[in-house]
Amino acid sequence: MPMDWREARKTVYEAGRRAQLPPTTVPLNEADGLTLAEPLTPRTDLPAFPTSSVDGWALRGVGPWRITGKVLAGQTAAPLTEDGTAAEIATGAMVPEGTDTILRIEHSTVDGDLVSGTAKELKEWREPGEEAHAGEELFPAGTPVTPGLIGLAASCGYDELTVTRKPKVALLIFGDELLTSGKPGDGRVRDALGPAMPAFLTRLGAHVVHIEGPVEDTLDAHVAGLRAALDADLICTTGGTMHGPVDHLHPALKAIGAEYVVNTVAVRPGFPMLVASVQHGGKTTFIAGLPGNPQSAVVALVSLVVPLLAGLTGAEEPMPSPVTLAGPVAGRGDFTHLSLVRRQHAGWVPATHVGSSMLRGLASAEGFAVIPPHSQGLPGQQADFLELP
């Protein structure tokens, strides 16, 4: 029996977590798109010292105040030791010890070596630890690294981050009917997944290390292709997931000693998708069997490969997000239906040209609306949504 779609996603995510990839340390400028393997905590209070938020005068006591110095950003401030004294101060500069208040430059009058004016009652500087305290957890392990997080890490005193490395992915394209160049004809079609799937996988944070195809439609060729790719963390195959006369994936998996994690999913299109695993070189290698029809293959990608990669990197389990439908979406009986949709002003509408073998609808869509079994999507209703990479 095909596994329930949501159960299948959870199953492969948990399998990935059990085989989570080891951590590595990379410079900040190489961390974007990776996943934190350790919590991000400041190495000092943020800010580390009292910091002026304006250009003006650091004042002690009552005025007028005698100007005794200047402190710029990046300098260590000399203390104000006497009442009635002032130090010119720049935005971002360290507030001198002994400062009672800061007078904005635009609210001040200077006469010789004296400055006068009325300071705001509101404090015009940031105290140590106002943003965060040393050792405070800012982001947990499993958080995706973004440019904003990289900037925060730098402000916390980091030169490097401990992250989970990118999963190494191999791609095997099965099918004697596939052409790799030129126009389709004479019973043969162009391979669309060979050029497209590496881009999808790269956008999902994977490192594509091996591409082979079209692999000959024989059992020996399938077994040889899988064995040659076992050093990868994940092997994605396209085609051969059924049990037809040239579908050799299942016997090839048996030949290399693989065990099923998920074998067929109650989803349309693309239900003959699968994930298997095999032990190789002291680690787990996963095999994701994607159907050969392009749209079905992408359904399998967002259904199973996305949560599997999240598990391998220690990221949180990916969940659909809600969208509002602006057009009707049919259900598929006992199966979950993943329907290609695109955004319009009033909401999300089904894409056109969405047959399993078609790419036109896929190219114009932004993701899939998830219609549960025994239901349909109606205009104005909310539906779960999976974004295309």
Score class of each variant (00 low, 15 high):
Pro42Cys: 10
Gly112Glu: 02
Ala134Cys: 14
Pro96Leu: 02
Asp100Glu: 11
Gly135Val: 00
Lys123Ser: 13
Leu36Lys: 07
Asp32Met: 12
Asp111Asn: 14
Glu121Gln: 14
Glu82Pro: 00
Ile150Tyr: 01
Val145Gly: 03
Asp83Cys: 03
Pro128Met: 11
Ser116Thr: 11
Ala73Gln: 15
Ala141Ser: 12
Thr118His: 12
Gly135Pro: 01
Leu72Pro: 04
Ser52Gly: 01
Glu82Gly: 05
Leu40Cys: 10
Ala48Gly: 14
Pro140Leu: 02
Arg104His: 10
Ile105Gln: 15
Gly157Val: 03
Thr164Glu: 02
Thr85Asp: 01
Thr101Ser: 15
Ala119His: 11
Val71Pro: 02
Gly117Cys: 05
Asp32Glu: 15
Gly112Ile: 03
His133Thr: 15
Thr118Ala: 14
Ile67Val: 11
Pro147Met: 06
Glu121Lys: 15
Thr76Ile: 13
Asp45Lys: 07
Pro144Gln: 00
Thr109Gly: 06
Val145Tyr: 00
Lys120Ala: 15
Ser155Trp: 06
Thr164Leu: 05
Thr85Phe: 01
Thr51Asn: 02
Ala119Leu: 11
Thr91Ser: 08
Glu30Met: 08
Ala141Met: 09
Gly112Cys: 04
Gly135Asn: 08
Leu80Gln: 02
Gly69Phe: 13
Lys123Leu: 06
Pro140Asn: 01
Arg60Gln: 09
Pro42Ile: 05
Ala86Thr: 11
Ala90Gln: 14
Thr35Pro: 10
Cys156Ile: 01
Gly129Tyr: 02
Thr41Phe: 03
Glu127Gly: 01
Gly151Gln: 10
Gly151Arg: 14
Thr44Asn: 13
Gly84Pro: 03
